[in-house]
Design a protein around this nucleic acid. Structure first.
Length: 420
RNA sequence: GUGGGUGUAGCUCAGUUGGUUAGAGUGCCGGGUUGUGGCCCCGGAGGUCGAGGGUUCAAAUCCCUUCACUCACCCCA
């Protein structure tokens, strides 16, 4: 029989790893709460058109990376490749802007992109996604960046670097974009085939080409920061001032372009070493026209996404708390088994983690198992104890044993274990 | 979609110029202790050597095909 395996690029998160995930998520929830964000849970599927419109028809994501299928009623459905579109859709659909002029939301969950897997890149991956609607002030930009950096630091990510840029708005970016095209056309034949293609599709992409000869050309290309309109330029300088006030260190990377069409003004990215080629841990930016473009009110927005697999993989030797069981009930013989089955489950119902073995193995074997489960105590109950109407409670670290009457054993254990 | 690397026990890996019954460590089960864990000692189970084909007296080993995993390009979290 052929073995059925998980789908390529889609991973199980095994019991040994889930505590780290929960730990990271818990830190995020606490910090996001402090900054005034509330959780929203949105579906992992949406109508395909939502992503086509928000992310951009000509982006790689929409062109070749989406998991799309036709539903039984012929509607096109897509597994979300990112969360922002869904959050905005929900924000509009439930008219959240009416309740509060500024809405701050976060969501955590899986995303899907059909790319070739490699280190730090999967077809199902997890993101924490944070969005602010209704605030166009530069403080808002600085605030989300601060929250992001603070979270990553508290989570324990090493060697963080923050890069920021401004991508301009619909007034100034086209001018810049045109200037870049003009410039690149002059050096067209020096560029790599990929970049020659990029000029047609998305000229700004040429900026993060890794080919050396392209880098030389790019070095003298027009800079976005020189083309910003008065408003964008002012906004960007205030963002920098606020970041300075918040004592955040950052680098301005005028070559940074984000992969999604909807970004305006501030864009930012956090990288970490020890991540392989996919070294971008989190990225985001402002998207002031997007909500209205998707049919909502004309409110500004800013947000970011954090890649959880990448975040966790660059945590220094994540401290895995060992799995711990409060007590192991070792039963010997049929009568003891019957009694212990009831006892074990009573303890569980009282909020104590209790384990026992039903297959009547040797005491040695049961003790071994108790040790493996990292039990604080083992209760030993055999024919002799049934006869004497008592049980032996062994402290697994001190090896001390005491005799407990069967009449009150449940209550005695509950009080001992709830104290410890 | 394109290129490189790797596939041997649950896991991590040895395996010589092709040569008998494919090994180790770890984990698992049992025993040493007729009812007491970790350390130690002994034993046991566990493998279509990724799959298919070919060369050969003989293939884990050489050749071809294919699949999977992985890293990188592309792109992005």
């Amino acid at each position: 029989m052929e073995k059925i395996t998980a789908i390529k690029g889609i991973k199980d998160i095994l019991p040994a790893d889930t505590p780290v995930w929960r730990h990271v998520e818990q830190i995020a929830r606490e910090i996001f709460h402090c900054f005034g964000f509330r959780e929203i849970r949105v579906p992992i599927m949406e109508k395909t058109a939502l992503f086509q419109r928000s992310i951009g028809e000509t982006t790689d994501i929409v062109e070749k990376e989406m998991y799309t299928f036709r539903d039984r009623d012929d509607e096109l459905i897509t597994l979300r490749p990112e969360a922002t579109a869904s959050v905005i859709r929900a924000y509009i659909e439930h008219n959240l802007s009416a309740a509060d002029p500024v809405t701050k939301l976060y969501t955590i969950g899986p995303m899907f992109r059909r790319e070739r897997p490699q280190k730090g890149r999967f077809r199902q991956f997890h993101q924490m996604d944070v969005e602010v609607f209704g605030d166009d002030q530069p403080q808002s930009d600085a605030e989300v960046i601060l929250m992001l950096m603070h979270f990553l630091q508290v989570a324990g990510v090493q060697k963080l670097s923050l890069e920021i840029n401004s991508l301009g708005c619909k007034a100034c970016r086209p001018v810049f974009s045109q200037a870049v095209v003009e410039y690149l056309k002059e050096s067209h034949n020096v560029l790599c085939p990929d970049c020659q293609r990029r000029i047609q599709i998305n000229p700004l992409r040429v900026f993060d080409c890794k080919v050396e000869t392209c880098g030389v050309v790019i070095a003298d290309a027009p800079r976005i920061l020189n083309y910003l309109c008065v408003e964008c330029s002012y906004h960007f300088s205030l963002v920098k001032n606020h970041l300075d006030d918040l004592k955040l260190t950052y680098e301005i990377n005028p070559q940074m372009v984000r992969g999604l069409d909807y970004y305006t003004k501030t864009a930012f990215e956090v990288k970490s070493g020890a991540l392989g080629a996919q070294n971008s841990l989190a990225g985001g930016g402002r998207y002031d026209g997007l909500v209205s473009f998707l049919g909502g009110p004309d409110v500004p927005g800013i947000g970011f996404g954090i890649g959880l697999e990448r975040l966790i993989s660059c945590l220094p030797d994540p401290d895995k708390p060992p799995y711990r069981t409060d007590i192991f009930i070792a039963a010997l013989g049929a009568r003891a088994q019957k009694f212990c089955f009831g006892l074990t489950n009573e303890l569980r119902l009282s909020g104590i983690s209790a384990a026992m073995d039903y297959s009547d193995k040797s005491l040695k074997s049961q003790m071994k198992r108790a040790d493996r489960l990292n039990c604080a105590y083992t209760l030993i109950l055999g024919d002799q104890e049934m006869q004497d109407h008592c049980a032996q409670l062994r402290n697994m670290s001190t090896k001390e044993q005491q005799s407990l009457s069967l009449d009150t054993v449940t209550q005695t254990l509950i009080s001992i274990l709830h104290e410890g």
